[in-house]
Simulated scan of single mutants.
Amino acid sequence: MKTQVAIIGAGPSGLLLSQLLNRAGISTIVLERQSREYVLSRIRAGVLEWGSVELLRKAGVGARMDAEGHPHDGFHLAYNNQEFRVDVHKHTGKRMMVYGQTEVTRDLYEAQDEIGATIIHGVENVKLHDLQSTPRVTYELDGKTQEVQCDFIAGCDGFHGVSRPSIPDDIRTEYEKVYPFGWLGVLSDTPPCADELIYANHRRGFALASMRSATRSRYYIQVPLTDKVENWSDDAFWDELKRRLPAEHAKTLITGPSIEKSIAPLRSFVCEPMQHGKLFLCGDAAHIVPPTGAKGLNLAMSDVYYLSNGLIAHYDDGNSNLLSAYSETALDRIWKAIRFSWSMTTLLHRFPDQTDFDQHVQESELLYTAQSKAAQTSIAENYVGLPYSR
């Protein structure tokens, strides 16, 4: 098979890139290891930056998001049984959209079906070849070896995919920070305990109250990395969450059976460069952030923004300047998001070696933020998403 851009991975970044390119008249083939049903079963983030909202609209997949999503103008920070609100809209003129990643992926699949895009599921043993000249991708499907010849390859296949290791070791540099705790998350068909997200710093550990819709909630508590999901009953989770949330919200918390429960370790990770020859990395293939601050999916979308613009300029005008600058441009925004996620994680979590002095410094920082317009503006600008470089 031949195509202009081969895309490895049918997660939201791969599907969004395919959607934008196809709408610009650029052919793609998307290769995905898992089934479509498996991809749609993944439970992931649900807070979209305004830049991501606008990009989805540009891709022609914003109708259901606009009808069913929940625009948010701010969020709450809590500590010592008190809280304050960061008014993102007041400080930036922008807002966020609460709309689950699963729904974004579903919308993208349906849009790809409508335009007849080629998505091949169940591929195995994917390998990338000739990245410096005429790239090609080989894979196995139903026991037979297949090949895709292409002009460019987009690696949207996540942290454990084949794309990043295809950049030679002597060229690739990886930066990583592993945090000494994880998030135990529960999804439940219960009304959220608040209209906006609540990030809580508590001496027992961090907690987050979030939502997917008016009837579906997503909650998290910080747990040691040694904890196991099976050791946390629903009742134990709800009891611990109530201890960490401000009393006002703990009293109104509506509990119910979990429909999904998992523990996610936290890490910061960046790969440099994000391009090698005619291979370009997007999303988790190139970077991972702690979920504190909701940057993971949004960073993947900003990668797609830069890469799609570069590819469209290359094919429309023969101008490859944006493609050549892709890694540098994307990494500038990525490292700023890495910094923000790190700062929020450091501010809100209880670390194993943390002293009472450290806890007082955290609480003092939160108090300062509550009283400082400048501090709130800085957080709001980063939370709603820094502007894309043009």
Rank of each mutant, 00 (worst) to 15 (best):
H70I: 14
G283D: 05
Q359E: 12
N81M: 06
A374Y: 06
P192G: 05
P273L: 07
D142V: 13
E230N: 11
M301H: 12
G116F: 09
Y79D: 03
E32Y: 07
W50A: 02
Y368H: 12
R106Y: 08
E196T: 10
C193Y: 04
N298H: 02
L245G: 04
S327P: 03
Y306M: 07
E381H: 04
H72K: 14
L56G: 03
Q112M: 12
T134S: 14
P191Q: 02
T252V: 10
R204L: 14
K373M: 00
A78N: 01
Y79P: 06
C156K: 06
S13K: 00
A10G: 08
D227Y: 07
C156P: 05
H89R: 11
M97H: 09
G9T: 01
S324L: 13
Q112T: 11
D358N: 09
D303T: 07
Q132S: 12
P273N: 04
A247D: 11
C282G: 08
T3E: 01
F340M: 03
H160F: 15
Q101M: 09
T3P: 06
Q112C: 15
G283K: 00
V47A: 07
V47K: 06
A207F: 08
Y383V: 08
H160G: 13
D87Y: 03
R350Q: 11
Q222T: 07
Q101T: 10
T215K: 15
Q222V: 08
K2Y: 13
G318W: 07
F340L: 07
R57Q: 14
L253E: 01
A325S: 13
G69E: 03
E248Q: 11
L108C: 04
E260N: 13
I167Y: 05
E240N: 13
S188T: 14
F351H: 13
I29R: 03
Q376K: 03
S378G: 10
T226D: 13
F280G: 06
G293V: 06
L208M: 11
H287N: 08
F75V: 01
H360D: 13
F152K: 05
Y109Q: 10
T346G: 14
V5C: 06
G11E: 01
I288V: 15
D235T: 15
L245Q: 05
L77C: 03
V270T: 09
R243C: 13
F340P: 00
Y79E: 02
F237C: 09
T134L: 14
Q222D: 02
S233A: 11
N319C: 10
Q359I: 12
A300T: 02
P257D: 07
S341C: 14
Q132R: 13
